[in-house]
Every structure is written in C-alpha cells, then in structure tokens.
Design a protein around this nucleic acid. Structure first.
Lengths: 157, 157
DNA sequence: TATTGTTATACTCTATAACTATA
DNA sequence: TATAGTTATAGAGTATAACAATA
C-alpha cells in the first residue's frame, strides 16, 4: 500500500523484502503469462525451453542438453518425442557413436521458436517493462542478465 | 559467455532472453540459498513465509492468510500447526465468531523472523547484490518491488 | 444454506532406479 | 565395465473434494 513499509521513525537501513520474496511471485506471474502464448503456438513450456537451448548452442547430446537446462535426462525425453513428431527438431544417430542422438533444430523449429519468442517479448514489453520507470528498465535487464547466469554456488555460498 | 549474444551484424532491436528465462533460474537459486539459513534457524520455507505475512499485516483469518501468500487454505494448516508447536504464533478462537481462529505472532515469533530475515538479507547483499554494478542496484530493487506487487492479471493480460 | 477450519483423496511433477544397446 | 538413451517406479508437492462445527 505504501512505498516504504515497516519500522517507524527510528531509521536504520531502508527495509526491503527478501529478494526471493519478490522474485518468486514475479517468476510465477511471468510463467503464467507465457502459457496462453505457448498454447496458441502449440508448444509446451519445456518444448520452448528446449527450442531456445538448441537455438543458442546448436548441437549436443541429450544428456548435455538436459544438463544445460537444469533437467534430468529422463525428463526431456517425452519433450523431444513431441518436438520431433511436430517436425521441429531432428534426432539422428551419430555415425561415430551409435549410442548418441545428434539433435538439431529443423527450419520449422527455428521459425516456430522465433514467432513464440517475438510474441512473448512483445507482451513483456507492453505489460511488464512498461510498468517500470523508463530510467530503470535497462538497469533491470542488465541485472537480470548478470544474476541469472551467476553459478548457483556463488549465490548459495 | 559474451555480453551481447545472438544475431549478426544486421542489427535490429538488441536481443535479450525472455524475462521468464532469466527470472525463473534466479528464483530457484535464491530459494536454494535460503534453505540452509532456514534450516539453521529451525524454520521451514512456508513457515518463514507465514511469519513474514503475519508481521507485515498483523491479524487475519487462516483463509485470508492463505490467500495473501498465494496458497490454498488446506496447505498452510500443517505449517500453522508447526509454528504453534514451536511457540512462534498463537491461534485463538474468535469470541465473536467461533469458527475462525485469530492468528498472531508471539514475541518469540517476531524475534525469530527478525533474525532469519537479517541473516538472509546479509547473504543477499554479500552474494547477490554485490555482483551488480553499484549504479544498478537501487534500480533493480525498485523494479522488483514494483513488478512483484503487480497484480498477475496485469501481466497475463 | 453458507462459511471456517480440517482431513482425505487424487493428480501433477520430478527424481531414482532398472533396462537396452552400444562402446 | 562404462555410457547414451529409454522406460518404469516411487516420492514430494499441490490442488480438489468431502467433512464437522458454527453462523
């Protein structure tokens, strides 16, 4: 309700809520906001995560892909199955080691990812970033970029 | 690895990852960082959320409390049981309406919440905010404060 | 009949552990 | 024997629905 909640006139360090207490609800809201967009584009949340991962770092084995998105290797299998059925990725056995499946985006996959991304980011600009003082937007995104790529160990201690 | 990933020289709007793709991993890392602190203070994550909620808006019914923290009323019951066992909150039947239980922090609860909060925020200053350019820190917190209190409907559309 | 707190049930995710095929 | 991918099982967390007491 008010801008500076909390302790009285005594002063002291300006009180703030814990970062987690602010970031977690924001994360939930952002994910919820993506859901209708993803549905409209016929892609699941994990499917979109995988499309992004493959677009950012072209080829990899399934285990490496899983690790890069913080998932278990068993968890992404149904996701890959579905993406493949829809023609968005290719899975081809590696001639050099027939145990591994080489992963690659198809052209359709690349296009799909682009249109989902455009729709999501447009919504973010209009509904999220627009709520911020214009002078703070760049700093906010800069901070997010830094913190989201910080190794979790650095944060845990 | 590099500051400005992505598309080549063509230009266009500076590419960025989706906000959700940055905020979700950050949220996970922040929660993971709180866990050892909470364990050391013998409070569960949900317990701490409840202590904070009660400290910020003193008295309320269980249903209202649940709603204020985005949980189902059935989900907080075991949490309240445990906090009460530990003497951190009081649950007293409302004389005016004997269906409702009036909730209140005990003095021990208030103190416990304060020490957990101090420990968590100290860690956040040292490990998270310290990673940001100093000029960006205030803007980052300002932005979080605004966005985390934005009604989810405003974000979803 | 509607509402508060509670308990019981079901469902969704996720992690773990077995299994196969290659190496 | 060790590893990549897959499948099956089990566990945690959450939501939904039924219940008793009170209004």
């Amino acid at each position: 309700m008010n801008g500076t909640p909390g302790p009285g006139p005594a002063g002291g360090p300006a009180p703030r809520r814990d970062l987690a207490a602010m970031v977690v609800p924001l994360a939930r809201a952002l994910v919820a906001a993506e859901e209708p967009v993803l549905r409209a584009h016929r892609v699941s949340m994990w499917g979109y995560v995988v499309l992004n991962a493959l677009a950012e770092q072209p080829v990899r084995t399934q285990a490496a892909l899983a690790q890069s998105i913080g998932a278990d290797k068993s968890r992404i299998i149904s996701v890959l199955d579905e993406l493949q059925e829809h023609g968005l990725i290719e899975r081809r056995p590696d001639p050099a080691d027939r145990r591994v499946h080489l992963l690659a985006l198809t052209e359709a996959g690349r296009r799909r990812r682009e249109s989902v991304r455009a729709a999501i980011q447009r919504q973010e600009e209009e509904r999220v970033l627009a709520a911020l003082p214009e002078a703070d937007r760049a700093a906010f995104i800069r901070a997010l970029r830094i913190l989201s790529t910080l190794p979790p160990e650095d944060i845990r201690g």
